[in-house]
Design a protein around this nucleic acid. Structure first.
Length: 270
DNA sequence: ATGGTTGGGGTCCAA
């Protein structure tokens, strides 16, 4: 009686379908949420997922950029997607699944790919940064209007914000680097209150511990230099968080052949 | 302070 849910920015699901197979074999998630699938729905390698036992897929893709998907061993009762900021980007998909130990109300899973926000942390000169801030604001107001608190829900994905000092290799060096600026951290804080959402990863890895889920491709010595950031998150409403058993971040996947720059994060519920 | 790498689609943009 347990459920394992994982999230992974795969940076092209077609190119890395083999790495997904390896991850699934080694860690056996029941539900796998992917970001940056980078292909149209018709191009999604559904056969690979079906052959691994993920009979139920909710896909929101687009050509070339972004794209999210949820692969599930459990039946998907229904799926939804929302076009945050009305730009036509495929950055959200959600499903509901029945989980016996969570009771009668289905579990809702939201999978997000929040905009990276470009290089310059100033919306006047960098519209991509403005888009990121607006996206976070819209998530906050949308969840605030959902009245989530009594239902079991999980929010996962590449949120492209590392909120804590221990979510980055150097708090000081990254204060003006997009992903760790005070305005992004403040907006993420408001988003967390909108559930309220509990940061499941930090339930098991206390805030005094450094932990990362992403290492840039631009660092040839990613492991030695270890200039990582925790951009990928798993959050839960209290009725789901009650059942949290374990959290793991699979750093080894960053060292696999032709890796994604992100590694998978997983929670076990029981 | 700077430049470093990757993927997709096509000779450049987003990350």
């Amino acid at each position: 009686m347990s459920l394992k849910i994982a999230t992974w920015n795969i940076n092209s699901v077609r190119l890395r379908a083999g790495l997904v197979e390896r991850y699934v074999q080694e860690h056996q998630p029941d539900i796998l949420c992917l970001q940056e699938t980078k292909c149209r729905d018709s191009e999604f390698p559904s056969g690979v997922f079906k052959s691994m036992g993920f009979d139920h897929l909710a896909i929101n893709g687009q050509k070339g950029y972004h794209g999210v998907a949820i692969a599930s061993r459990l039946p998907i009762l229904d799926m939804d997607k929302r076009d945050f900021c009305g730009m036509g980007d495929a950055r959200h998909v959600s499903v509901r699944v029945k989980v016996s130990f969570l009771g009668e109300i289905p579990l809702t899973i939201h999978n997000f790919y929040v905009p990276a926000g470009g290089d310059e942390p100033d919306r006047q000169i960098n519209p991509k940064f403005g888009h990121k801030l607006d996206f976070l604001d819209e998530m906050t107001s949308w969840f605030a209007s959902c009245k989530l608190v009594e239902a079991p829900a999980i929010l996962v994905g590449d949120l492209n914000v590392a909120p804590l000092e221990t979510d980055v290799w150097s708090h000081k060096a990254l204060l003006s680097v997009v992903s760790h600026t005070p305005i992004e951290v403040a907006k993420m804080g408001l988003l967390q209150k909108s559930g309220p959402w509990i940061d499941a990863v930090r339930e098991k890895f206390p805030a005094d511990q450094k932990i990362y889920s992403w290492w840039s491709y631009r660092s040839p010595n990613w492991e030695i230099a270890d200039k990582g950031r925790r951009l990928d998150h798993i959050w839960m409403t209290p009725p789901a968080a009650k059942h949290l058993q374990a959290v793991s971040i699979h750093k080894a996947a960053r060292g696999w052949e032709r890796p994604s720059d992100h590694v998978p994060s997983m929670v076990s519920l029981a």
